[in-house]
Design a protein around this nucleic acid. Structure first.
Ligand SMILES: [Mg+2]
Length: 224
DNA sequence: GCGACAG
DNA sequence: ATCTTGTCGC
């Protein structure tokens, strides 16, 4: 229903490797790192992929108000491209797009495994997804691609800025006591504050946001 | 040219 | 990401 926009955008963009490559250059001008007027997400979706000789993509939708999974699907796909640091969207975005086209429930915010604007050209996977799908997106990564940070105190809720070219591009966020921080960077249509708050709130059974943790588990077990 | 390098 | 056993800790 609400994915007519998604379908439309993908068709207009003639979604393919070439178009993604084109978008890498103009994405910085399109990205909006600011909350939408009444940003208060309930359905938070997340996607993750397990790679073998093929790819297993899993999508999990989590309801913040109900505190439970409201939808989840897993699909086997062909791997679109090899992994190249800084060009992750070429590999994972096509897979995510295909799976999102199949879901029926709404998505108020999408959390992805990778960076948002904490990228050389502010074009991390999450930023790419946000622009293409016209959705608020947050990038959550285990490691840094670019930038520097001072480790925050290892206490849930503590955080420090990730600085790249003298600019703040994200935060190292401790989501669990005595556990190494995860890197959070807004992708599109959301700010640093809301990104941090949502990720922290969703870090329930691990240091990672619940829907992403579950998508990772689903994808991995289905790839065996 | 060397080293760094999301997943 | 994946290849892989044990080990430390809650
Ligand atoms: Mg992943």
């Amino acid at each position: 229903m609400s994915y007519i926009l998604l379908l439309d955008k993908i068709n207009k963009s003639n979604f393919n490797q070439g178009k993604i490559e084109e978008l890498y250059s103009i994405l910085p001008e399109i990205i909006i790192i600011k909350d939408e007027p009444d940003f208060n997400p309930d359905i938070v979706g997340s996607c993750d992929v397990s790679y073998r000789s093929f790819a297993i993509v899993s999508y999990v939708a989590w309801s913040v108000s109900k505190r439970c999974v409201v939808e989840e699907i897993t699909r086997k796909k062909e791997i679109p491209a090899e992994y190249i640091p800084g060009r992750f969207a070429l590999r994972e975005l096509p897979l995510i797009a295909e799976v999102l086209l199949e879901i029926s429930s709404q998505i108020d915010c999408l959390i992805l495994d990778g960076h948002g604007i904490a990228h050389p050209q502010m074009s991390g996977l999450a930023s790419f997804a946000g622009v293409l799908f016209k959705l608020p997106t947050i990038g959550t990564a285990k490691n840094l691609l670019v930038g520097e940070y001072e480790s925050p105190v290892l206490k849930r809720g503590e955080h420090s800025d990730i600085i790249y070219n003298l600019e703040k591009v994200g935060e190292a966020l401790c989501t669990k006591d005595d556990t190494s921080p995860i890197f959070v960077s807004p992708g599109h249509l959301i700010g640093f504050e809301s990104s941090r708050r949502l990720i922290l709130e969703l870090a329930i059974n691990s240091k990672f946001p619940e829907p992403l943790r579950l998508a990772d588990i689903n994808a991995r077990k289905s790839s065996l």
